[in-house]
């Protein structure tokens, strides 16, 4: 049996706890023994990307301490995992060596460590998949969420035109450059809506919150789901 420490990420912890719960259920159903180091907080990506290196370093060091003894670290976010794997080594040096190599994006962990693509999920719907940039480019694991979605029974998965274009979230960019960020969201949502899909699904809660927040402001009720919630979905007894 494989063991995994859940890094739930600050956004999911605070704003979308149901994504964390779905992540745990899917992992446990696959026989993964999940623990949750309760001292965890945030990976520091927002600070790092905004230029606050010293501040990000403090959070990175905390993360390395909290997960020092974890066999595997699994997070429902490509972006936070990219922060750990790609930027921690440069930020905190040797201290990051262990956590960086043991840190997995949720669907990557399922595919490559657990070795499963079909988790028995079923969802009768048409979905449009939003490929998040850091998962796609920095982790280079864009095929993981796609392969998992392809095995969900009843689910028709499509992608929007210009799928490689960013949704405009970008951490504090979404707040400090709200007008540009929103123009990018609108360009993305126009293409998402054009697919006619009923569910918008992605593997990064941050992008989804940004897009969903914009949809709500536009008065749209489009269903937005994190991939863990799709994989958790089934007509279970």
């Amino acid at each position: 049996m494989t063991r995994a420490s859940l890094f739930v990420t600050c956004l999911v912890d605070l704003l979308r706890p149901e994504i964390g719960e779905a992540t745990v259920r899917v992992l446990e159903r696959q026989g993964v023994q999940v623990d949750f180091p309760e001292e965890q907080t945030c990976c520091g990506q927002a600070h790092y990307n905004a230029g606050y290196r010293t501040e990000a370093k403090a959070l990175a060091e905390h993360f390395c301490d909290v997960f020092a003894n974890s066999e595997n670290i699994v997070a429902p976010s490509g972006s936070c995992v990219a922060m750990v794997k790609r930027h921690y080594p440069e930020l905190v040096g040797q201290r990051a060596a262990g956590v960086a190599s043991r840190c997995w994006e949720f669907t990557g962990y399922l595919r490559h460590v657990v070795g499963v693509e079909d988790v028995g999920a079923k969802l009768e719907a048409s979905a449009v998949y939003h490929a998040s940039c850091h998962l796609q480019r920095e982790l280079g694991t864009g095929q993981d969420p796609r392969a998992m979605l392809a095995r969900v029974r009843g689910l028709q998965v499509t992608e929007p035109a210009d799928a490689d274009q960013c949704c405009g979230f970008g951490g504090t960019f979404s707040m400090t450059m709200a007008d540009v960020s929103t123009a990018m969201a609108d360009a993305k949502l126009e293409r998402v809506k054009a697919t006619g899909a009923s569910v918008l699904v992605g593997a990064d809660a941050a992008c989804l919150l940004h897009l969903e927040g914009r949809l709500r402001r536009q008065g749209c009720e489009t269903c937005v789901m994190h991939i863990s919630q799709v994989l958790d979905h089934a007509d279970r007894p």
Binding site: D13, L15, G20, F36, E38, A178, R217
Partner: peptide, 25 residues
């Protein structure tokens, strides 16, 4: 503050009534 940039064009989800860590506990 900073969040005002967000809410200028988008709705913001509130902190959950029970966070993940509270649910886990």
């Amino acid at each position: 503050s900073l969040l005002g940039g967000w809410t200028s064009t988008r709705d913001l989800p509130p902190i959950a009534a029970k966070t993940f860590r509270e649910r886990w506990a």
